[in-house]
């Protein structure tokens, strides 16, 4: 069966003005237990690549510049 691309709203939001991933920081990507964050090749900033979040918050708490916000996933908030 062929595959479809289905839209989903993701809980983790990154403030690109604060994010220093383009300077070599990978803290949020490194601490995510589900490995769902990536650095964008286009912007050089971190973003949530997969909607597979446990809303556990190390990415937000450990971000050195406070650039990451974790929202409660829509299905359960």
């Amino acid at each position: 069966m062929p595959l479809a691309a289905t839209q989903t709203s993701v809980p983790v939001v990154v403030d690109n003005d604060k994010c220093i991933a383009d300077k070599g920081c990978t803290v949020c990507v490194d601490v995510c237990p589900l490995d769902v964050l990536r650095i964008s090749e286009m912007t050089g900033k971190a973003y949530m690549a997969y909607d597979e979040c446990w809303y556990c918050m190390p990415c937000a708490c450990d971000c050195p510049t406070g650039a990451v916000t974790v929202n409660i996933p829509y299905l359960l908030k």
Binding site: I20, D22, K23, G24, C25, V27, P64, T65
Partner: peptide
Amino acid sequence: ADAGERRVAVM
């Protein structure tokens, strides 16, 4: 020169 790069080095 960039503060962000210095910050990453500190980490």
